[in-house]
Computed example of a mutant assay.
Amino acid sequence: MTDEQPTPAAAEDRAALLSALVTEHFVLQSAASSTIGESGSRASIYLATLSSGLVAIGFSSSNPDILAGLAFTIFPTVFILGCFTVVRLIDTSIANVVALNRIELIRRYYSHLHPLAKQYFAPDDSTEAGTLGVRYRARSVLFTAASMVAVVNAVVGGAGLTVILSIGTTFPAGVGVALGVVAGVVVLGLGLAYQVRRFAPLLSASRSTPADG
Rank of each mutant, 00 (worst) to 15 (best):
Thr170His: 05
Cys83Lys: 10
Leu116Ile: 07
Ile74Glu: 00
Tyr120Leu: 13
Val86Met: 14
Phe84Ala: 14
Gly82Asp: 05
Gly130Leu: 15
Ala154Lys: 00
Tyr136Thr: 00
Arg135Gly: 06
Val86Ser: 05
Ala117Trp: 03
Thr170Ala: 09
Val149His: 01
Thr85Arg: 01
Ala99Cys: 10
Ile106Cys: 09
Ile103Pro: 00
Asp124Ala: 15
Asp124Gln: 14
Arg137Gly: 11
Arg137Gln: 14
Val78Leu: 02
Ala117Glu: 03
Ala138His: 09
Ala95Glu: 14
Arg137Val: 15
Val163Pro: 05
Gln119Pro: 00
Ala150His: 09
Thr127Asn: 13
Asn96His: 07
Ile94Tyr: 00
Thr92Phe: 03
Ala71Cys: 04
Leu81Phe: 12
Tyr136Leu: 06
Ile164Asn: 06
Glu104Pro: 03
Gly82Ile: 08
His112Arg: 11
Phe121Trp: 15
Asn153Leu: 02
Gly158Cys: 11
Thr131Trp: 07
His114Thr: 08
Thr85Ser: 05
Ile164Ser: 07
Phe171Asn: 08
Thr92Pro: 00
Asn101Thr: 10
His114Met: 09
Tyr110Thr: 05
Ala138Leu: 15
Asn96Leu: 02
Ser93Val: 00
Gly157Ala: 15
Leu165Gln: 08
Cys83Met: 13
Ser126Asp: 10
Thr170Trp: 01
Ser93Cys: 02
Thr77Met: 13
Leu70Ile: 02
Thr169Gln: 12
Val156Tyr: 10
Asn153Val: 02
Asp125Thr: 06
Arg108Thr: 08
Asp125Arg: 10
Val98Asn: 03
Ser111Ala: 15
Ala129Asn: 11
His114Tyr: 06
Thr85Ile: 00
Pro123His: 10
Ala122Gly: 03
Val98Trp: 01
Cys83Gln: 12
Tyr120Asn: 06
Thr162Asp: 09
Val151Asn: 05
Val163Gly: 03
Ile74Lys: 01
Val149Thr: 04
Leu105Pro: 01
Val163Tyr: 04
Leu113Trp: 03
Ala150Glu: 13
Val163Cys: 11
Leu165Ile: 13
Ser140Met: 03
Ala145Asn: 09
Ile80Arg: 07
Tyr120Glu: 08
Val141Asp: 02
Asp124Lys: 15
Ala146Met: 07
Val86Leu: 14
Thr169Pro: 13
Phe121Gly: 01
Gly158His: 12
Val155Glu: 07
Thr85Lys: 01
Val97Met: 02
Ala154Ile: 06
Leu89Gln: 03
Leu100Glu: 09
Thr85Gln: 01
Thr73Val: 12
Ile94Cys: 03
Met148Val: 13
Gly69Met: 02
Gly168Gln: 06
Asp125Leu: 08
Ser166Ile: 09
Ile103Thr: 10
Arg108Ile: 11
Arg107Thr: 04
Ala145Leu: 13
Leu81Arg: 13
Leu116Asp: 11
Ile74Thr: 01
Ile90Gln: 12
Thr77Trp: 12
Arg107Glu: 14
Val152Leu: 14
Ile106Thr: 04
Val98Glu: 05
Arg88His: 10
Leu89Trp: 04
Thr170Arg: 09
Pro115Gly: 08
Ile106Trp: 08
Glu128Lys: 14
Leu161Pro: 04
Leu89Cys: 06
Gly160Asp: 07
Phe171Lys: 07
Gly69Asp: 02
Pro172Ile: 06
Glu104Met: 08
Arg88Thr: 07
Thr144Pro: 02
Asn96Ile: 00
His114Ala: 12
Gly168Ile: 05
Phe121Cys: 06
Val98Asp: 04
Leu81Asn: 11
Arg135Tyr: 11
Ile167Lys: 12
Ala145Met: 15
Thr92Asp: 03
Leu81Cys: 07
Ser147His: 08
Val155Pro: 05
Thr169His: 14
